[in-house]
Structure formats: C-alpha cells, structure tokens
Design a protein around this nucleic acid. Structure first.
Lengths: 129, 129
DNA sequence: CTTGACTCTATAGTTACTATATGTTTTATA
DNA sequence: TATAAAACATATAGTAACTATAGAGTCAAG
C-alpha cells in the first residue's frame, strides 16, 4: 500500500510516518518505479507498535530502544521492564504535579468573585503573591 | 540590580529573563552606560508574577494576556476568570489521560514476569496488541 | 492530453526554554 | 596601572515530536 492508505488505516498523518522513517523508527520502505513508498502489512504492524507506545507517552528514543529489544527475542526482558517502570515513575510524578496545579487553580477560580473588576479580582491577587 | 542578581533572587536563568523580554512579557529594562540591563523592584515583581503563572503551566501567550489585563484595573475580570477556567479544564483533561496511562503501564509492568526473555515478555506482547 | 489527486523532498514553524560562540564591560588582583 | 577573571551583551542553534508549506514529480481517469 502507499503512504496515503497507511496513513488512513493507521491514523498517523503522512508527515508523521515520514518523520518516523527519518528518525529510524520505521524501516525504509520499498519504492515504486515512480519513487512512491510501498508498505507491507509488517510495516503497518510496526507503525501500530509505535502508535501504541506513543499513546503511553513513551518518548521516541525509548520506542527506538524497545524496537531494538523486540528484535532480540532471546535476550533478557529486564531492560524492557526498567523502561516501563521509568515511564510509570514519570507519569506518577506528573500526576502529583497536576494535582497540585488543580488545587491551586480551583482555589483561584473560587476567589474571582466574577462580575467585579480586575482591580478587585481575587485571581490576579493570588497570582501576584 | 543587574541581570545576574535578578536571576539569582528570582530563580529564573539569565537566558530565560532575556527570553521573556524578547517575547514582550517583561518590559525593556533601563540600561547602564555600558549597555547592561538594570532592573527595579517592580521588574522583579513582574518576573515573580510570570514565574507563578508558569508554575501553574499557563502558557506564555496567556500570561501575556493576563499582564495586559492586570494593567486595566477598571475592566471586568471576566476574561481573567475564563482564562483560569480554561487552564483548569486543560489540567483536568491531562489528569484523566495520565490516569489511563498509569493503569495501562501498571498492568503491563505486572505481566513482565521478569527474569524471562524478551520473546516471552508480557510487556512486549501487550505493546504489540 | 490534460486535470486532479497523490506523492516526493526540503525547509520552516511550534513551545519554552537551554546552550553555545563571540565580543564587550566591569571588577578584582598583582 | 596593567591585566585577568567575571559578568554581561547579541546572535544563533538545539531540544521533542510533530505540523505546515513550497515547489516539483507521478499516476489514473476522462
């Protein structure tokens, strides 16, 4: 299939597919006589793998490592596990931060006293302190 | 004070301060005879305001709007409120996403069965599906 | 044989900074 | 006073993961 079809069935934009190729996450595909990229079902699966990893917010560099590991089936899966644990740690950290953000933003919003002027607005006041 | 001192007392890097100036978030400061930036306490407070907003993950463009609003004390604070509510919506959305991420990552980690090979690793399997 | 859809490469823009190169000014020391 | 070190100046490039655009080539249908 050509890149347009791959794009539609995968849900990745054409530019993104080409970008993944440039970054070495997708193998260079075969080319048609007229230099169009031609993809196999295998390429499609590789793209799905990347998509799934991205949906977990795993950075491209780590996805690259996962793909390399995937191609060494006999090796220990310890590094895979470490990578996922690291991702989990990151997510937990960010969640904590967001919880704090949420709390402060909610407090601020509640002090606005809408309908009044900026001069007396509780939000601006709390941002100022 | 010069930029180094402002940087130290505010906790913003020198480059960041200059960047905020370039982006129009900080007013162009006075200059010494030798062209060094000279800051007042007012500038310091403006920087603190920006810092506080950034700690709430408010994007620079919106901070710029907040600063403009701040300088119109007699206007309605409605737009301030909308801006903060939008930020809150964003944070809530991201939190939901992170919760889902966390769940899936945890499930994946638990299927690893560490000590085994990549071939049999539950993590890679779940990423493949 | 031409039109339109699709594809190609290369390049610039996005966000909020950080890092680097190169040059000038000020401050401290010899 | 000479000089060396520290602080400052501007301009430019790099970061992550794309998205958007420009300008040109390819292909199928009418």
């Amino acid at each position: 299939m050509k890149i347009g079809e791959l794009s539609k069935t995968s849900g990745c934009s054409i530019q993104t597919i080409r970008y993944y190729e440039k970054e070495g996450l997708l193998a260079d595909p075969e080319r048609s006589e007229g230099n169009f990229r031609l993809y196999s079902n295998k390429a499609m699966k590789e793209l799905e793998f990347i998509k799934h990893c991205r949906s977990l917010d795993i950075p491209l560099a780590n996805i690259k490592r996962l793909i390399e590991l995937k191609n060494k089936p006999e090796e220990s899966c310890l590094s895979v596990n470490i990578l996922i644990e690291q991702q989990l740690t990151l997510v937990n950290k960010r969640m904590k931060e967001l919880k704090a953000l949420k709390k402060e933003l909610q407090q601020m919003a509640s002090t606005c006293g809408s309908g009044s002027t900026i001069e007396t607005c509780g939000i601006i006041k709390s941002l100022d302190s």
